[in-house]
Design a binder for these strands. Structure first.
Lengths: 89, 89
DNA sequence: AGATATTTGTTCGTATGTATC
DNA sequence: GGATACATACGAACAAATATC
């Protein structure tokens, strides 16, 4: 297993995995405010089209953002910016 | 100088390949009845987590059990203990 | 109530590249 | 060179919950 210490920060290097790169882009879109708190991310299908990657890879991106606490997912509905609605405290 | 005496079932030193060892464990879980006839094995992803091995290696394990006739796999669904549902006779 | 579309969840199948022994 | 092992990436099929009409 290769060490991935700072992989979840920001990584636009073209030699890093696609899911890492796309995650970096999405992170920017969130932190810049383009995707406001509470607003939904594009659907997995949509993102797979936008970024030209497979849905399975998109899911890896979303999983990463979720683990960072940047987004939360409501099953069968979508993924949203911010902490879980009734979640954190 | 003396060879290390290894007794544990799960031992990741390459006395034998990992997939052989994990296959042995799964075989035991089946023959002991812990995994009953007709019941599903953990998913490949799940097993990769449980045993700390790659999914590609898990698939090697399952392939071995399948060749032994211990399990059968339904594509996009899962792998189950026993002979194929409509298969045997 | 019912039908349909959307979206996430889950699973196996396949392929490629890299590294190690 | 072959076997083992891992990470990545795409594809396909189906299920289940949700929203909408």
């Amino acid at each position: 297993m290769r060490p991935v210490a700072s992989v979840l920060v920001i990584d636009f290097r073209p030699d890093s995995p696609r899911w890492v790169q796309v995650a970096a882009v999405m992170r920017k879109r969130i932190e810049s405010g383009e995707l406001a708190q509470g607003s939904p991310l594009p659907s997995e299908f949509r993102m797979s089209e936008e970024y030209g990657i497979a849905r399975t890879t998109v899911r890896k991106v979303v999983a990463a953002l979720r683990e960072e606490g940047l987004v939360y997912t409501v099953p069968n509905l979508g993924t949203f910016v911010g902490p879980p609605a009734g979640g954190g405290e």
